[in-house]
């Protein structure tokens, strides 16, 4: 379970300002979700919720989803609203920091990927590539709350 800033992901223990990420997301959540008209598809939760993932595979999925958001999502979310852009930058840089912390666990073999997480990550990529890049990126950013709820 997570303290305000300590994430326990199986054997991997990571210190992270979840409160800052959560606060940044909360301040743009309504704006970003309003830009996503597709209610019948979830990138992170289709076909199964993240909550179905075995605890032993949480670190792997968190690590790969951090990379997914850093490499594929944030860069395609630029908006006409400078406040939103600044908050996205704040979240993106925090995710970079989180991924670096998770990388240490990965290198110490505390972040193993099993079949279940590999399939889940593959499904997320399929869901993402089923939409055009901007729609997929905005939808993924709008679902950050789902990821944070699950991580915490």
């Amino acid at each position: 379970t997570a303290g305000n800033n300590i994430l326990q992901l199986g054997p991997c223990r990571v210190s992270m300002s979840m409160a800052e990420i959560r606060s940044g997301f909360n301040s743009i959540k309504a704006n970003i979700q309003a830009r996503d008209p597709i209610k019948s598809l979830s990138i992170l939760s289709y076909p199964h919720s993240l909550h179905k993932v075995k605890p032993s595979e949480r670190c792997c999925i968190t690590h790969h989803l951090c990379s997914f958001y850093v490499a594929k999502v944030f860069r395609h979310c630029r908006t006409e609203d400078s406040y939103v852009n600044r908050k996205i930058s704040s979240i993106a840089n925090s995710f970079l920091s989180l991924r670096r912390n998770l990388q240490h666990c990965h290198e110490q073999n505390k972040c193993m990927c099993g079949q279940e997480s590999t399939e889940k990550l593959k499904q997320i990529t399929v869901n993402y590539e089923g939409l055009n890049v901007t729609s997929a990126a905005i939808k993924s950013l709008g679902e950050l709350g789902i990821l944070l709820d699950w991580m915490e």
């Binding site: 209610k39 019948s40 598809l41 979830s42």
Partner: peptide, 8 residues
């Protein structure tokens, strides 16, 4: 009402 991601 609808569940997000299901959409029905």
């Amino acid at each position: 009402y609808s569940v997000y991601g299901v959409g029905k």
